[in-house]
């Protein structure tokens, strides 16, 4: 008979959550956004997602085999990295782009540092930034929504950056995702649905996503185009990859601070950097760079927000 008596020191609280289970739950919560992306951009988006996920899994397997580590391909973390990377790509990239991105994300972004739990930077974002710096042409060519003939269009944020007048894009369209953009970032409704699921199950807390979003909204409202307090804050929250980044990538357990206080600092930092890049930076969108920069600051934040051990000073 299997020994079901677990002998361990206190605390004896037991929760039915493991790393692997949480990873798969995040994957599940991301499904609506992917399905929405497929509806908006056509079946091409599905191929990008599949290529990203499969090459991430294969890379994880090969690297762990060569490094003589325990092979943990099916713990969901590599799947999640591949999925998030694909969600961060435009829907009509050449087939090798998601593959190269996934290989970089897993091999350099994660396994070089020692595997899951050791990486400093969010692997999916590291992969995306590598692709962005290497092949900017493909990474900034977006297709028009629901037009499967690959007519290129700028994202709303890029159009804003070039000083064009935004026409025909209502906030409702932005909310539903009828706009140019990356596969997984466009449909805010589906993303919020997934995020709600994670909140209810307690896998993510409100600290990072809410502070992040609020700070971006506040900052873009204050420093508007027509003087102070004239910005279109709702537009800035609904466009770009803010919701995807704030709810699914900034909340990555490995690369975000441990304490509540630290998480709030992290969220505020991400929000400030994103808004600054969007308003005055060279790129139209700054979510990935903001999160990566705050990832780099996470060890320092953790050091200064260490919780006091009971009974010590």
């Amino acid at each position: 008979m299997k020994n079901r008596l677990i002998v361990s020191v206190s605390p004896h609280l037991h929760k039915d959550a493991s790393v692997s289970k949480i990873m798969w739950m995040v994957v599940v919560s991301l499904i609506p956004a992917g399905v929405a992306g497929m509806f908006i951009f056509g079946v091409g988006a599905l191929w990008v997602i599949l290529l990203g996920v499969v090459s991430a899994l294969i890379t994880e397997w090969i690297v762990q085999l060569f490094a003589k580590r325990r092979v943990s391909v099916l713990d969901g973390s590599a799947f999640l990295t591949g999925l998030l990377l694909a969600y961060n790509l435009p829907p009509r990239v050449p087939f090798w782009l998601p593959i190269v991105g996934s290989v970089f994300a897993i091999a350099i972004g994660k396994q070089v540092f020692g595997g899951l739990g050791q990486n400093i930077f969010n692997p999916a974002l590291a992969g995306r930034v590598f692709l962005m710096a290497s092949w900017p042409k493909y990474m900034t060519t977006f297709t028009k929504p629901q037009n499967f003939d690959a007519i290129t269009s700028a994202t709303p944020l890029a159009a804003l950056k070039e000083g064009k007048v935004l026409e025909g894009i209502s906030n409702w369209n932005l909310f539903l995702g009828i706009r140019g953009g990356c596969i997984g970032e466009v449909c805010i409704f589906a993303l919020l649905l997934g995020a709600l699921f994670l909140f209810v199950r307690g896998y993510i807390s409100w600290h990072i996503p809410v502070t992040y979003t609020v700070v971006v909204g506040l900052f873009t409202y204050i420093f508007g185009p027509r003087g102070l307090f004239s910005g279109d804050w709702l537009f800035h929250i609904l466009s770009g990859g803010l919701i995807l980044g704030a709810f699914f990538m900034a909340t990555d357990y490995v690369t975000s601070p441990l304490t509540r206080c630290g998480q709030i600092i992290f969220g505020i930092g991400c929000g400030l950097l994103t808004a600054i890049i969007r308003l005055w930076g060279g790129y139209p969108e700054g979510v990935s760079y903001a999160i990566l920069m705050m990832n780099a600051a996470t060890p320092i934040i953790d050091r200064y927000t260490k919780s006091r051990i009971y009974g010590t000073r």
């Binding site: 190269v100 350099i108 590598f130 710096a133 290497s134 092949w135 900017p136």
Partner: peptide
């Protein structure tokens, strides 16, 4: 299709 990043300083570090 060349990966521009390797021509940048970050590519050298990598």
């Amino acid at each position: 299709e060349p990966a521009f990043v390797l021509g940048l300083p970050s590519g050298a570090l990598l």
